[in-house]
Computed example of a mutant assay.
Amino acid sequence: MREKKSNSTAGSSARLHRLLDAQGFPPDGEGRVAAFARSFGVNTANASRWLNDDRVPRDMGELLRIATELGANPFWWAIGKGEEDTPEPEPFDITLFGRCANELLKQLQKLVDRPLDIDGNLLSSGYRELYEQAQNNGAILDPDRISLVAVKVLAEHRKK
């Protein structure tokens, strides 16, 4: 499974270590990667990236599964938002949220011909805006709205 690395996942490895400490996993450097991989049915290469490189599972279903098994809020693990051990209070479609994030990132790549170092908070606000619109529109992502949100994110990025 491919992972994504971005500024918005900064600190995710430290948060994952904190969750594993609370669950009694072996200490870092003493078999933690192997124990994590066995416990969650993932390969050790991915486990190592998630534990050491501030990466998270690209597959939102896998992220949700692991976070749930750890009793953690997946958003706290991935981007440091929300409470550590409190799931989202309202029903949340993580697959739809992932689609919104992917579509926004694709649109940003179309608009700019070079890699951008966009603040994670800006990206998160764009993801949330698209998610809320899609929820109110029967899980349909409006291409015009995606373009509008991408332009808004770029405009805010350029202000900084």
Rank of each mutant, 00 (worst) to 15 (best):
L63D: 00
P143S: 08
H157T: 05
K81W: 03
V151G: 07
L19A: 04
N52D: 11
L104C: 04
C100N: 02
L51Q: 03
D21H: 06
Q133L: 10
V112F: 05
A37Y: 09
Q135V: 15
E69A: 12
E156P: 05
Q107H: 01
G138Q: 08
V33G: 07
S48N: 12
I118Q: 02
S39G: 12
Y127C: 01
F40K: 10
A150P: 04
E62C: 05
V149Y: 10
K152T: 12
V112D: 13
N137W: 04
D117L: 14
F97S: 08
L122N: 05
E132R: 00
E156M: 13
N73V: 07
G80R: 01
A150R: 03
P26W: 13
T86M: 14
E132S: 00
T95V: 13
A47H: 09
V112N: 10
R38K: 11
M60T: 13
R18C: 00
G126T: 01
R18G: 04
E83N: 09
V149R: 04
T95D: 12
I94Y: 06
R65C: 02
G138E: 09
I140F: 13
M60G: 12
D119N: 15
A155I: 07
E132I: 04
Q23W: 10
P27N: 07
F36S: 09
A22I: 05
L63E: 03
H17P: 01
K110E: 15
N136Y: 08
A139G: 07
W76A: 02
G98L: 00
